[in-house]
């Protein structure tokens, strides 16, 4: 932690957050998340009312198909949606803060493309089991981000250089994915659908891989959040108060990468959530990028992200447009609209 908390706090031009607003954002998010969660547990081909769902959650899945569906299909999918939404949103907030770039998103570190490349490579070469595939994807994402960081290290992780390095690494891995898909032709059809990003068909196997990465990432993010406040300041100010900017950009960037890589490995590249949710959260709180305490912002972004993501998945599951859209499509669609609205209101 910083040595001189007073200097740091005075350096930070923090805007006070109105408690009522904060409570409202938390309350509405929790209500949306809970309502969507219950809908996800009860909606599906096998009709189940909420009371039945409660009983089925603890019933023997060996003897009841409905219990099996609730416990092995609907519950993991709902939890994965919340975890992925929370993790990507928090990762997006971290990236936007360390790069001081409101257009920042986790994929700017190359992690998304790297994880996707590792999974495509593993899939076409030896088609491993899901748990292995998850690990391969996660480490692929981390490796790609480490390449980005090593490219940006010479400039002490200067935000512009970090962004450019991330974009370059992403482009490289996207090209490599295209090359693999061309090379392996028809056998990559399954990967094509995975690349859209989806929670469909995810089970306890994926959930058991995801949860610990997300919880570790979320915890580390909150623990180190004071440094995010400082990194929003000018580098010279940071140096003058004894903050090693390079070290903390790297550590916090790595936390964002861990959060993202595990999500991409489980759900595929889910676009826009990591980018748009931090903006929505700040907008709801009525604060700007450089003027908020991340100790509040990070968990709040995770909550809003989790709520928004499970809500979008519930919307998709309800087949409101006749078919179930994968989250990768619905999040980009809804995220795109929200982006335009925020942009029009000059909030970005």
């Amino acid at each position: 932690m910083p040595n001189n908390q007073n200097i740091i706090e005075s350096a930070l031009i923090a805007q006070p957050i109105k408690k009522l607003r904060l409570s409202l954002v938390v309350g509405v998010s929790v209500v949306i998340m809970l309502a969507s969660f219950l809908f996800m547990l009860s909606a599906g081909r096998m009709s189940t009312d909420l009371l039945e769902v409660a009983a089925l959650l603890f019933a023997d899945s060996e003897t009841s198909n409905k219990a099996l569906v609730i416990q092995e299909l609907r519950l993991p999918r709902a939890l994965i949606a919340i975890l992925v939404g929370a993790a990507l949103s928090m990762a997006g907030t971290i990236i936007q803060s360390i790069t001081r770039n409101p257009l920042g998103s986790p994929s700017l570190t190359g992690v998304t493309a790297g994880a996707a490349f590792a999974i495509v490579l593993a899939f076409v070469t030896y088609s491993p089991k899901t748990d292995i595939l998850m690990l391969v994807g996660t480490f692929g994402g981390i490796c790609a981000a480490l390449i980005t960081f090593s490219l940006a290290r010479q400039s002490r992780f200067d935000p512009v250089h970090l962004t450019l390095a991330g974009v370059s690494v992403s482009i490289f891995f996207m090209a490599a994915i295209s090359a693999l898909m061309l090379l392996y032709g028809e056998s990559t059809n399954a990967i094509y659908f995975w690349l859209i990003g989806s929670f469909s068909g995810r089970t306890m196997v994926e959930l058991s891989h995801l949860w610990y990465w997300v919880f570790i990432g979320l915890a580390l993010g909150v623990i180190f959040s004071p440094y995010l406040n400082l990194l929003l300041l000018d580098d010279d100010i940071c140096h003058s108060i004894g903050i090693n900017v390079t070290k903390w950009r790297f550590i916090l960037g790595l936390i964002a990468v861990i959060l993202t890589a595990a999500c991409v490995a489980v759900a595929g590249p889910v676009g826009f959530i990591g980018f748009i949710v931090p903006h929505i959260t700040r907008k709801l709180l009525g604060v700007q990028l450089a003027s908020i305490d991340h100790k509040i912002l990070l968990p709040l972004t995770a909550l809003v992200g989790g709520a928004l993501t499970i809500f979008m998945d519930a919307l998709s599951r309800s087949q409101i447009i006749g078919i179930e859209l994968p989250i990768g499509i619905s999040s980009t669609f809804i995220g795109g609209i929200l982006f335009v609205i925020l942009f029009k209101k000059r909030s970005i």
């Binding site: 099996l68 569906v69 088609s127 089991k129 899901t130 595939l133």
Partner: peptide, 15 residues
């Protein structure tokens, strides 16, 4: 004949 591990991963199929 198609790819993916859907059958192998999903416990529902065993039922």
């Amino acid at each position: 004949r198609s790819e993916g591990n859907t059958y192998k991963n999903n416990p529902v199929f065993s039922k």
